[in-house]
Amino acid sequence: MSTDASPKSRRLLVVLGALTVVTAVLAGVLYFTLYRPDQRVDDTVRAAVTDTASQGAIALLSYGPDTVENDVGAAKERLTGEFLDYYTQFTTDVVVPAAKESQVATQATVAASGPVEVAADTATVLLFVNQSTTSAAKPEPAVTATSISVELTKSGDDWLISGFDPVQAHG
């Protein structure tokens, strides 16, 4: 009997080993498809959200005293949700009057950018933005550098900005 138990034990070990490998592979596949939504989008989507966030930031932060209303109107086309409401109110109450009365002009450029999280219909992109501001009182450009977390939401085929928050430095 001891000679029969040994081949049966070996077969059982081989079957258990194979089941372990199959289980590990399935767990890995499930992790990367269900629990890692950033793995379900391709590089084209990552590039699209990064470009949308970058171009949107430039539109939001760049305007001139003679074109501010058109600049703000064009920027609003890139926004959605509560952020669109906030931006509309803020530009109406603060930006447009200040640009006209004080001859404020700003020009933003994106120095660096990268996707933080990208899913099928939402994304977060980190931007490093430089902004140059002039006014009638201060014609020499004041340059500031800011890190901004941009949230995007997919609407049809387009990505729209749904959040735009400066990143607080920790130190």
Rank of each mutant, 00 (worst) to 15 (best):
M1W: 14
P7L: 08
P7C: 06
R10C: 07
R11T: 15
L12S: 11
L12Y: 13
L13V: 13
G17H: 07
A18Q: 04
T23E: 08
L30A: 13
Y31P: 00
F32D: 00
Y35I: 02
P37Q: 06
P37H: 04
D38A: 09
D42W: 12
D43A: 14
T44D: 15
V49S: 07
T50V: 04
S54L: 04
L61K: 07
Y63H: 12
Y63V: 06
G64T: 09
G64Q: 09
P65L: 02
E69I: 09
D71S: 03
V72A: 03
A75K: 05
A75P: 00
L79Q: 02
F83C: 01
Y87V: 03
Q89L: 10
T91R: 07
D93S: 11
V94M: 02
V94P: 01
V95E: 08
V96F: 06
A99F: 03
K100Q: 12
A105E: 09
T106M: 12
A111I: 13
G114L: 08
E117Y: 03
A119Y: 10
A120M: 08
D121R: 13
T122K: 05
L126K: 09
V129D: 03
V129F: 11
S135A: 01
S135L: 06
A137T: 12
P139C: 06
P141D: 01
A142M: 10
A145K: 13
S149C: 01
T153Q: 10
D158V: 08
W159E: 06
L160G: 04
I161L: 09
S162H: 04
P166T: 05
P166F: 14
Q168L: 15
